[in-house]
Computed example of a mutant assay.
Amino acid sequence: MNVKTWAAAGTAAAVLLGGGWYSWERGSAPHTESLCGTPSGGTDAEVATSAQGIAVVEAVGAAAHDPRAVGAENPELVTTPVRVVATMKGDFAPSIGVSQRVEPGGTPGSFELATSNREVIMKPGERYVVAIGPGDLKARPGTTTFATFIQPARRGPAGEADYWRNVIATAPPKPICDDTAG
């Protein structure tokens, strides 16, 4: 099993178990991150507490396997290109790719969710609230963001922004943990 496959397995286990470390190597530059209690399917308050970033986004392309997201040999990750409409937590670039886990197999271009009842597959032209657990909100080259929450923006961008800002303001503080990205 190569480094990228180990990284994918570690990421999945950490997200499902609510914490942990994972590492991967992209060319000659190793990259390490920690996941500090990122819930998969937690309450809105848990999502607000643990998320690195929360935003309303519009999908500008279809979900597709992304060989840059941990490795081409990992068909269990798809990335959707999005435009950031409103930011409630974190400092996002105007456009990013949002990666999420899906079930392997199926017909090309058709994906089923693997881990969470709080995620949907994004469709081009539609708006969603996304919470990013680990990843680079600035979309620097060679980086990936991983969603822990993706739901349709049913309240509209302004309504979702107001709702989530209130949830963030009243959520308990994040437990002490050393989130690092190197």
Rank of each mutant, 00 (worst) to 15 (best):
P94Y: 09
G61T: 06
P172K: 12
A8Q: 09
G42R: 05
E126V: 06
V60M: 10
A158F: 06
S34F: 04
I176Q: 11
V78F: 04
E103R: 15
T87F: 00
I54P: 01
A63L: 03
E119Y: 01
K4Q: 14
N74G: 01
A86G: 02
S50P: 00
P141S: 14
T107C: 03
E103Y: 02
A29E: 10
T170G: 05
A62E: 15
A62K: 08
L17G: 10
A158E: 15
T144Q: 14
A93G: 05
K123P: 01
F111R: 06
R127P: 02
A51T: 06
Y163P: 01
V167N: 00
N117F: 04
G27A: 04
T180N: 06
R127M: 08
F92N: 13
P157R: 02
D136V: 01
G10A: 14
Q151H: 08
V98Y: 02
E160Q: 08
A161S: 12
A69N: 05
M88Y: 03
V82E: 10
T80P: 05
E73G: 13
K123S: 13
T49G: 04
T38I: 14
D178L: 13
N2I: 11
V47R: 05
V82W: 07
A147L: 04
P94H: 11
V47Q: 11
P75L: 05
T170L: 00
A158C: 03
S116Y: 12
G182Q: 13
P172Y: 00
V56I: 12
T32S: 12
V15M: 14
G159S: 04
N74T: 12
P104W: 04
V84D: 03
G42S: 03
Q100D: 10
D44W: 01
R26K: 12
A131L: 02
A153V: 05
V15E: 09
S116N: 07
Q151P: 03
I132G: 07
R26D: 12
V47L: 08
T144V: 15
I54H: 09
T5D: 13
R118H: 12
A48H: 02
G182S: 15
G42L: 02
A62M: 04
R68Y: 12
A181P: 01
R154P: 00
L17V: 07
P124I: 01
A153M: 03
A12I: 09
G20I: 00
P108D: 13
L16E: 14
A171T: 03
V70I: 13
G106P: 04
L77W: 14
M88Q: 12
G133E: 05
G156F: 01
N74I: 14
Y22D: 10
A171E: 02
K4A: 13
A55G: 03
P94D: 10
P94C: 10
Q151M: 08
R140C: 03
T32W: 00
A181R: 13
G42M: 04
E25Y: 01
G61Y: 03
L77C: 02
A8M: 14
F146I: 14
R26L: 12
V98D: 00
V60K: 13
P81D: 09
A93N: 11
G125T: 08
I96E: 09
G19C: 11
L35E: 12
G20S: 05
T38E: 15
S50E: 06
C36R: 05
E46W: 01
I96S: 07
A131V: 03
K4S: 14
K174A: 14
A153Y: 01
G142V: 07
D179C: 05
